[in-house]
């Protein structure tokens, strides 16, 4: 009996010593299960119920999804979000890239310039949104005052349904600091001898940019592009703080629409259904972008291209 216990004990010890890596990974594992996996699965379950938070949920089958696809505002919000994403992200990626090129020079006080460009990125989204509400104010705002200097009568940025989207896209440029940092570190990782060799090979500035810098940076550009797209598809703060989705739903961002269902109209079931649809949309767009860019991305390691 004693012997049996001992073997049992040693087996347990063996199991522990073989799997103790789990212990080291446990903070992440527990966090992932508690804050990602369980909420995700419960939102999937909730999306098949009718639930107003106050009373117990009732099973509703596919009713929520039917209701979503019959809702004209669903399509409107999807369109608003997609337009914002696919206009602002390319602009931001390009601007951030060229800003990084400029900041990758060896002039005096370059660290000061780098800090200045990055500073906006540390300000919280709510503050930025409030700040820009004032900048865009049609009467006292900085922006229209600036335009007035050139004799242009600026539009009512935030209350004109045609100008709200351009206004938010311009505002998104405020946040390129994060990408600039990524690009800067990428640029500094490109070996200098490649440029020296290219100089001897009679490559001009443009050739060096397109034939050396861009291919070397392609994985970083893809990464920042992808994360920007994913982030833009989840835009919420601007709509919540600045516009409440208006005017005439012209800034009805998808994530804001989800929030309205969940916490304003207490339709948790439909909100979860909307959230899952967004998840699938983001997933599809990511897959498409990765597939489409595969041949254009250069990875140093052999298997790097096989993300999918």
């Amino acid at each position: 009996m004693k012997i049996q216990i001992r073997t049992c004990h040693s087996q347990f010890q063996q199991w522990i010593s073989k799997h103790k890596f789990l212990l080291f990974a446990s903070p992440w594992i527990i966090g992932f299960i508690a804050f990602t996996l369980i909420p995700m699965l419960s939102s999937l379950l909730i999306s098949f119920t009718e639930w107003n938070i106050l009373t117990p949920p009732k099973f509703a089958g596919l009713e929520n999804y039917k209701s979503v696809f019959a809702d004209p505002l669903f399509y409107k919000s999807l369109k608003v979000t997609l337009v914002y994403t696919f206009v602002s992200v390319p602009i931001n990626v390009t601007l951030a890239f060229f800003a990084a090129l400029l900041l990758n020079t060896d002039i005096k006080f370059i660290n000061v310039y780098r800090t200045i460009y990055y500073l906006p990125a540390v300000v919280s989204g709510v503050v930025v949104s409030l700040l820009w509400s004032w900048i865009y104010n049609s009467e006292f705002g900085l922006f229209n005052n600036f335009l007035l200097k050139f004799g242009i009568n600026g539009p009512r940025w935030l209350s004109d349904e045609h100008w709200i989207m351009p206004a938010l896209i311009i505002m998104s440029i405020w946040g390129i600091g994060g990408s600039i940092i990524m690009y800067l570190s990428g640029l500094q990782g490109i070996p200098r001898y490649l440029y020296e060799s290219a100089k001897l090979d009679a490559a001009n500035w443009w050739t060096r940019l397109t034939k050396i810098t861009l291919p070397s940076m392609s994985p970083i550009i893809l990464f920042t592009g992808l994360t920007s797209v994913i982030g833009a598809l989840q835009t919420f703060t601007q709509a919540y703080v600045m516009t409440s989705g208006g005017p005439n739903n012209a800034s009805l961002f998808y994530a804001y629409y989800v929030y309205k269902h969940a916490f304003v109209w207490k339709q948790m079931g439909k909100a979860c259904a909307l959230a899952w649809i967004l998840f699938i949309v983001i997933f599809l767009i990511t897959v498409i972008l990765l597939k489409a860019s595969k041949s254009k991305i250069y990875y140093e390691s052999k298997d790097g291209g096989d993300i999918l």
């Binding site: 070996p191 490649l194 020296e196 060799s197 290219a198 001897l200 050396i212 070397s216």
Partner: peptide
């Protein structure tokens, strides 16, 4: 010029 680390364009 031939560089020490060859400086071949990797892509």
């Amino acid at each position: 010029m031939v560089f020490q680390n060859y400086a071949l364009y990797p892509h």
